[in-house]
Amino acid sequence: MGAGPILSMQALSKRFGDVVAVDSVTLDIEDGEFFTIVGPSGSGKSTLVRILAGLEQPTAGQVMLRDGDITNVPANQRPTCMVFQSLALFTHKSVGENIEFAAKMKGVAKAERKQQALETMDVVRLPQDYYDRSVTQCSGGERQRVALARALASDPEILFFDEPLSAMDYRLRKILEVEMKDLHRRTGKTFIYITHSLEEAMVMSDRIAIMRAGRIVQAGTPNDIYRQPSSRFVAEFMGEVNTFSVEGGRIRELGATAAGVDDGYLVVRPEYLRHLGDGDEADVRFSAAVDNDYMLGSRTQFHLSVDDQVLIAELPAAAAAGLTIGERREWGFDLADTAHVPE
């Protein structure tokens, strides 16, 4: 990692008519990091990355690459490259011609271009005999590799990815997530990745920013965000969680006391709810009925009900053994295992 951010967004905003797609985003990206911007559809993440790539002009704010202002530099003159959601491969060109495109634009001689293309194909593990193949003959995973190779071959300082895995099936996505992370490590380039899947972001990223309605609501390492979400939105976006509202030291949904907890919300992950036997201690105790169970392999998920509130608990197989559906039991969790969010 170098000194200082490689890319710096300063109060970036983008309006389309009355719609504010990106709302005053300020964010620094470190040199060589895998940074992921996550958000639901319509959160402005795609627009943000298009501004960074130079495909869209911001309404206000600045984009700095190292110390230079690149806000008004057109896409074809930025040392960055984007992998599109559709991959945007040139369907009228061969695999080799796609990968060599940037070099051809720079006027690199044919032989040298081919040499570079073959080397890049090695990097993304694309067999060399694909060089003359038409991109329309390639499978989904191969096309993905061609798109990666094409972007890498342009030797950018920063690579942008706009949900390139979202159209893949689950198995292929898992394989490519690992490859992407591996590729990042081997190339040492800065990756800025856009996705709506927090799971994907968690697997791959050094840091994550969560975006909502054009704003960055939280940025940090996956661990920070997992342990200490800044809001209910972030916590609920992270996956299945139990959210309780706290007022005057009492948890409203459970009718239980939570001593010393400020007003706001408590977020409890399913794995931290446990059923209590005789003499088991817990900071917060309540009684709940078991509604349903779902096998998740090594763990079992239970849906519990307290009045009309449904809670989710996940227990390892051993702890799940004694539970039967319909049974009412004592449950609890410790405050150390919860995250407190003000809103």
Partner: peptide, 15 residues
Amino acid sequence: VPREQIEAGRDLGAG
């Protein structure tokens, strides 16, 4: 002509 192919071309340095 997919719009993204033109954008990709621009992004890859084409004038």
